[in-house]
Every structure is written in structure tokens, then in C-alpha cells.
């Protein structure tokens, strides 16, 4: 709903600056036309470079060297930390992951328990039919206390 009597919110310096930047680069303005041409030129140049066999050969070779250097460095760092009997980076990462997953598992367990209770309630009822498929793992126990 509009409020014609309410004045528009005062714009800060940053907002006005961004709007000016947007205006100057708009394709309808003179500066914007120049900008658009430059953008199109850069896009064409980038496309040419990224599809050129030389670029692909050089970048592929550099990547391979970088990855191999990383494999060697990782081996050295982990070896040194093990020698010093310090937790390695990968061990700390694993611990962090386990904590995050524990949180998710607790949440899922709540939902699964609700489902088990629901199934038990239905078994208590007189209806003999149970059309649901029974997944193999974690089948709810039929024992009741």
C-alpha cells in the first residue's frame, strides 16, 4: 500500500553514489554506451582466450604442477606433525565435521522417534492392514514395554 503523503526516505551518500555509478554505466547514457562496448569487447576477448588451445595447454600444465606440489607438501606436513605427535590438520577437520553432523543427527532422531511412536500407535489399533513398505534398516522394534 502506498502512502503519498509520506516523503521518500532520505538517501545516504553511499546510495546516491551507487545510483550515479549505475546511471553512468546504463546503456542509454553516453558513458554507458562506451562502457557497454568495452564490456562486450572484454567478453569476446575472454571467450577467445578461454577457448584457445594454447591457454588450455598452459593452464592445464600449470594446474597439474600445482596439484602435484600440493600432494608432496601435504605428505611432508602430515608426516612432520605425526612425528611431533601433534593433531594434523585433517584430524582437526574431521573432528569439526563430526560435531556438525552430530547436531543434524539429533534433529533427525527427533523426527524418526515421532515416526516410531506413530507406527506403534497404529499397531495398537485394531486395523490389521499395513500398506506401508518396510525399509530394511532401522525397522522400528515391535516390542513394547
Amino acid at each position: 500500500m502506498s502512502h503519498p503523503e509520506r516523503p521518500p526516505p532520505s538517501q545516504g551518500l553511499l546510495a546516491r553514489g551507487l545510483k550515479l555509478l549505475g546511471h553512468l554505466t546504463h546503456p542509454d547514457t553516453r558513458t554507458g554506451k562506451v562502457f557497454t562496448r568495452a564490456e562486450q569487447g572484454l567478453t569476446r576477448a575472454a571467450a577467445k582466450v578461454t577457448e584457445s588451445p594454447s591457454y588450455l595447454r598452459v593452464s592445464g600444465s600449470l594446474m597439474r604442477q600445482g596439484f602435484n606440489a600440493r600432494i608432496r607438501r601435504n605428505g611432508l606436513v602430515e608426516g612432520a606433525l605425526r612425528t611431533l605427535r601433534l593433531p594434523t590438520t585433517s584430524e582437526v577437520e574431521t573432528l569439526r565435521d563430526q560435531l556438525r553432523r552430530m547436531n543434524d543427527q539429533v534433529e533427525a532422531l527427533g523426527t524418526q522417534l515421532e515416526l516410531v511412536v506413530d507406527l506403534l500407535h497404529r499397531q495398537e489399533g485394531a486395523e490389521p492392514e499395513s500398506p506401508e513398505p518396510t525399509p530394511k534398516e532401522r525397522a522400528p522394534s515391535k516390542r513394547r514395554r
Binding site: P8, P9, Q11, A15, L18, K19, L21, G22, H23, H26
Partner: peptide
């Protein structure tokens, strides 16, 4: 730049 133009 489009979001700059339509910042309001």
C-alpha cells in the same frame, strides 16, 4: 551495476 541502478 543493475542493483546499483535499482538500489531503492
Amino acid at each position: 551495476l543493475e542493483v546499483c541502478r535499482r538500489i531503492d
